[in-house]
Design a protein around this nucleic acid. Sequence first.
DNA 1: ACGGGGTAACTAAGCGCTTGCTTATGTCAG
DNA 2: CTGACATAAGCAAGCGCTTAGTTACCCCGT
Lengths: 202, 202
Amino acid sequence: MPDAHPKTGESRPESARDRLIAAGVEAFAAKGFHGTTTRDISSAAGMSPAALYVHYKSKEELLYQISRTGHEATLQLLRESRASSDDPAEQLLAAVREFVAHHARGHTRARIVNYELSALSAEHYEEIRAIRRAINQEMRQIVESGVARGMFHTPNARMTALALLSLGVDVARWYRDEGEWSHQDIADHYCELALRMVGARA
Amino acid sequence: MPDAHPKTGESRPESARDRLIAAGVEAFAAKGFHGTTTRDISSAAGMSPAALYVHYKSKEELLYQISRTGHEATLQLLRESRASSDDPAEQLLAAVREFVAHHARGHTRARIVNYELSALSAEHYEEIRAIRRAINQEMRQIVESGVARGMFHTPNARMTALALLSLGVDVARWYRDEGEWSHQDIADHYCELALRMVGARA
DNA sequence: ACGGGGTAACTAAGCGCTTGCTTATGTCAG
DNA sequence: CTGACATAAGCAAGCGCTTAGTTACCCCGT
């Protein structure tokens, strides 16, 4: 909303900010933050190098915007999954299905979200860490509520919750668009794995 | 073996090559290949920038040596686990325990092995990919042999094997030395998770 | 209808610095 | 003397980012 265009409204093809974000996502995911130059990004967005600085203070701020919106989308996805039912097993299935599909479909963005944290400034990193803690807590509460109701059986609910997230995050590392499994196939199989991991079959 | 020292034998504190490797591991893991300068590496190894080129052709060749030995160690670990027993369940437990402990204890090296592949040259990348395929196959054969003997029950043995490796690899991403769980704790819990994932309790 | 003034987006050129790597030279054990 | 190892100095190229200037478009008093 900071760049809502006063007159063109919806017919505008794509804002310069968005094109820079899209170019940054591709480049950072492919070559990493430090392996990407501001010239890579701006030329992929069809601009001169200086144009990047009209819209973002620095290369790092572009990374931060990508990372922040990516983390917030992931957190929201887990919150909605947990709110979708009162049954922990249903919550778990929704969370795993959405989380895995999100990391497969958006593997490019997800790689930046999960593997480029060390390129953030100290302040930005702290902000992102807070979102990551909230993400962990969502999954933990699903598993712990299932254990509390006697529906799940695991000797260490926190580590199991971490393993579930870990499994989903790593999909972004190995997933390929040309692969033989669709993100649906993967999400379905991972739902089955998740039920087994939490010990849902008493 | 290319730099076996003729006389000092075992009392030699550490060769220059090894110090460069150690410095490279730390730097690459902390800031990534492109975020690390040759001056970072050489000064951490207590040498001038030019000394790196006495021992390695380029910064990329140093990365390659780290990546190759790391991959080979991982492959060997899985081969030994599989050879340690005829029982697929025993093989699985040995493989998961060793693989997870290896990725926790050696998380610094493991991060380079798994997250810095795109910085390798095309030729080196192909060589590493071959080792990675062999690693996948080891785990796959454990799971498939368990299914073939009716001891494991999973609808997609290949995806389950991939998930097991994925779970272990991702330990290197989140593991911290200061964390409250030792690598033994994690390995034990992950063994339990692995048995559930493959459906070992018929 | 018109022109002056303000604003936002963008570029060409380039600054100061750092990069990976090389060269010339020295040192020292065998 | 030789050869392996190290360094000081530095090169060409590339880096993130800045500056000065141009263009396009808005509002608004006359």
